[in-house]
Design a binder for these strands. Structure first.
Length: 214
DNA sequence: CCATGATCATTA
DNA sequence: TAATGATCATGG
């Protein structure tokens, strides 16, 4: 087991800025989509490897380090903006009910994030260049954090009052509770898999992070 | 089996 | 293009 500090991970990743991640994925044995299947998570997996993480330590329930995240960017007019939202962490209804924002996994991950911007070249893109790597440390009294906490509380209250089912991706100014799960039909039971949700950072928040890191 | 990586599809 | 909901491959 190798210990990789956050500073170290960033240093490792910075060496790859401007490189084509697809090629690197191939070299590191990370499946992308050449098998004819669509692995949507390959960028994240290869970045974890490049950072020096041996395996997937990103669940980080107990302890740990930092979150490695990547987001696709594309141009709108002449500006580089996030194309997609960024998954933060899964929502566990019971924990959301019990934990305040600063006790949540959501905050834990957000506050020590290692952010990777990746250029998006279209659907099923064959290339993906690493645009930039940045680490971010949020302070508990940061104005932005206060607003994010407001969103968290709003979603939390909605869960408590109206139940998990009532949550929707429309809630929240900076973060949202979107569906996220395996999806499809469970081949064993033939029934729909249960809907699960996760906290996502809206593009406006991602953009803010991107700017702050600039 | 299911949580995690994050993108894809659909609609307006 | 933007926003929301649905989906997929992988690894433990």
């Amino acid at each position: 087991m190798k210990i990789v500090t956050r500073a170290n991970a960033i240093k490792n990743l910075k060496k790859y800025i401007g490189k084509n991640l697809r090629k690197l994925a191939l070299q590191h044995g990370v499946t992308t989509f050449e098998t004819g299947k669509q692995n949507k998570g390959w960028k994240g997996l290869i970045l974890e490897r490049l950072a020096g993480l041996e395996t997937n330590v990103s669940k980080a329930p107990n302890g740990l380090s930092y979150e490695l995240k990547s987001v696709s960017f594309h141009y709108v007019k002449d500006e580089l903006v996030p194309k997609e939202t960024m998954a933060i962490t899964m929502i566990n209804p019971e924990e959301l009910n019990k934990h305040s924002f600063f006790e949540s996994h959501c905050w834990n991950k957000l506050k020590s994030i290692v952010f990777c911007a990746v250029m998006w070249h279209g659907q099923n893109a064959e290339k993906a260049e690493l645009l930039k790597v940045a680490s971010l440390d949020f302070a508990e009294d940061d104005e932005l954090i206060k607003e994010i906490m407001g969103d968290y509380d709003f979603i939390r209250e909605k869960l408590i009052k109206h139940g998990f089912e009532s949550l929707t991706g429309k809630d929240g100014k900076w973060i949202q509770a979107r569906t996220k799960g395996t999806g499809g039909i469970n081949p064993r039971t033939g029934k729909r898999r249960p809907i699960t949700r996760a906290f996502y950072a809206r593009t406006s928040l991602v953009n803010k992070i991107f700017e702050t890191a600039s």
